[in-house]
Design a protein around this nucleic acid. Structure first.
Length: 422
RNA sequence: GUGGAUGUAGCUCAGUCGGCUAGAGCACCAGAUUGUGGCUCUGGGGGCCGUGGGUUCAAGUCCCAUCAUCCACCCCA
């Protein structure tokens, strides 16, 4: 055991791959039913895109990026998230001059250098959606409804949806000042981390997990009370839209998102019961992002889901049985001298859309039968002396052990008849 | 980056107070009178006991380091 997958990465073997395909299909179908279309962007981008798009002050940019120089000394970074690349595409291809809003979904690996633990990897996978070009609060609601729809289709109903508004740049700056004033005299009672946060990102003090910090700042001004009239109006429309569509949520004054570009609506979806990394999805509005990247002033909203956490949740709280793909037919060659007849038959079956295989391990006829049993093939086709000489194939139905001697046309139509009935 | 737990066969694990060629179940391969699967039985292959050092007559077992995994902090999806 010398070569191992790098720390924080892992392999998806065929038995698990089936689970991925299952959730990927649900996500794709859900997003498409809401009018989103797939976008695929490179796995790496210019480092600058994330520095500007995600924010210099964030943990992601300051300590979690896989950044390297290529052979021409360009600084590139393995994408840590999917929103900034989408915004880049919007600008680069002038998509914003077409029909708006633009609604995209994406799925694929993201990279962050962080300490691995349950539900947290260095190469992890996100499914996300982005909608650019409208600041209509009902679009916020639609995006959240899609998120909830995916959970519902996955059979994960015990989620908690947290909702807040972080305001626009104007009311957030005003709030920030208010909060700084409030906390300043209480600073001594905060934990080390929070004293740091006070300077770097005071809003983060609010979601410190240490109880003493909560007590120290009890009675603090909430951003909710500091929203400007526009942001208030926006937020209340989002809430009404959710309520009228039967989506329950928890207003959470402490919900602040980590990435710099968020504005107004912010949300997170949690699944208690999958360990400490319970935030399975999160997102919000990012009205300043496209402009910050040098494009026009175009608003946007989106979310991202952590695939690994969803799979973990499915395993602990939901669906656990996944059907594995199986063969329709297995060709058993009873005698080496008929190997070529077996191969030709195999290829013909495959050409006719029958999922078929044969042994390549030089096994005896009996061992091939065993092998066929393990592949869970529905039928076995026997190729031996009698068959080749008399010009038929022996078809064995592995479920009821019935055997028939059939010509090739009949053989194929019999197999197809059964598999199409499934 | 910080703290804690754990590393023995492909997988799940046993291995006493340091003491013989390191075990089991599952999985894999072969056979049970030679053209027929699942059950059963018999046999077989497979282990630098994570890696490197140390203590000892003797280390899977004790000590140190390192790497990795897991749990939590942190952060986030």
């Amino acid at each position: 055991m010398q070569v191992k997958a790098p720390r924080g990465t892992y392999d998806i073997l065929p038995n698990d791959s089936v689970k991925w395909q299952y959730i990927e299909k649900i996500m794709k179908d859900s997003a498409e039913s809401f009018g989103f279309r797939e976008i695929r962007t490179p796995l790496f981008e210019h480092t600058e895109l994330f520095q500007r798009g995600v924010g210099q002050g964030t943990d992601i940019v300051s300590k979690e990026m896989y950044t390297f120089n290529d052979r021409s000394q360009r600084s590139l970074t393995l994408r840590p998230e999917g929103t900034a690349p989408c915004a880049r595409v919007l600008i680069e291809h002038g998509v914003f001059s077409g029909v708006m809003p633009v609604k995209w979904y994406y799925q694929g690996p993201m990279f962050r250098y962080d300490r691995p633990q349950t539900g947290r990897y260095r190469q992890f996978h996100q499914f996300g959606v982005e909608a650019f070009g409208s600041n209509n609060p009902y679009l916020d609601a639609e995006v959240i409804i899609l998120l909830v729809e995916i959970f519902s289709r996955l059979g994960l109903s015990d989620y908690e949806l947290h909702l807040n508004s972080v305001g626009c740049s104007v009311c957030r700056d005003a709030y920030r000042q208010k909060l700084l004033h409030y906390i300043a005299p209480l600073k001594e009672r905060l934990c080390q981390d929070c004293r740091q946060r006070y300077f770097q990102n005071p809003l983060r003090v609010l979601d410190c997990k240490i109880e003493a910090c909560h007590q120290a700042i009890v009675g603090y001004p909430t951003i909710y009370d500091s929203l400007c009239p526009y942001c208030q109006e926006h937020y209340s429309r989002v809430k009404v839209a959710l309520e009228d569509n039967g989506i329950s949520y928890i207003h959470d004054n402490n919900l602040v998102r980590g990435l710099d570009y968020y504005s107004n609506t912010a949300f997170e979806i949690h699944l208690p019961g999958i360990g400490a990394q319970s935030a399975v999805g999160g997102g919000g509005r990012y009205d300043g992002l496209v402009k910050a990247l040098g494009g026009p002033d175009i608003p946007g909203i989106g979310f991202a889901l952590g695939m690994e956490r969803l799979l973990l949740a499915l395993d602990r709280l939901g669906k656990r049985e996944f059907s594995q793909p199986s063969l329709d037919a297995f060709v058993v060659v009873m005698n080496d001298s008929y190997e070529m007849q077996g191969l030709q038959l195999l290829n013909e079956l495959r050409r006719k859309g029958i999922r078929a295989d044969k042994d390549y391990g030089g096994r005896s006829g009996k061992a091939q039968m065993k092998y066929a049993g393990k592949t869970a093939a529905r039928f076995v086709v026997l190729v031996g002396e009698e068959e080749v000489e008399k010009g038929f194939w022996t078809l064995r139905d592995m479920q009821n052990k019935e055997q028939f001697q059939l010509g090739q046309e009949e053989l194929i139509s019999s197999i197809r008849c059964v598999i199409e009935a499934k």
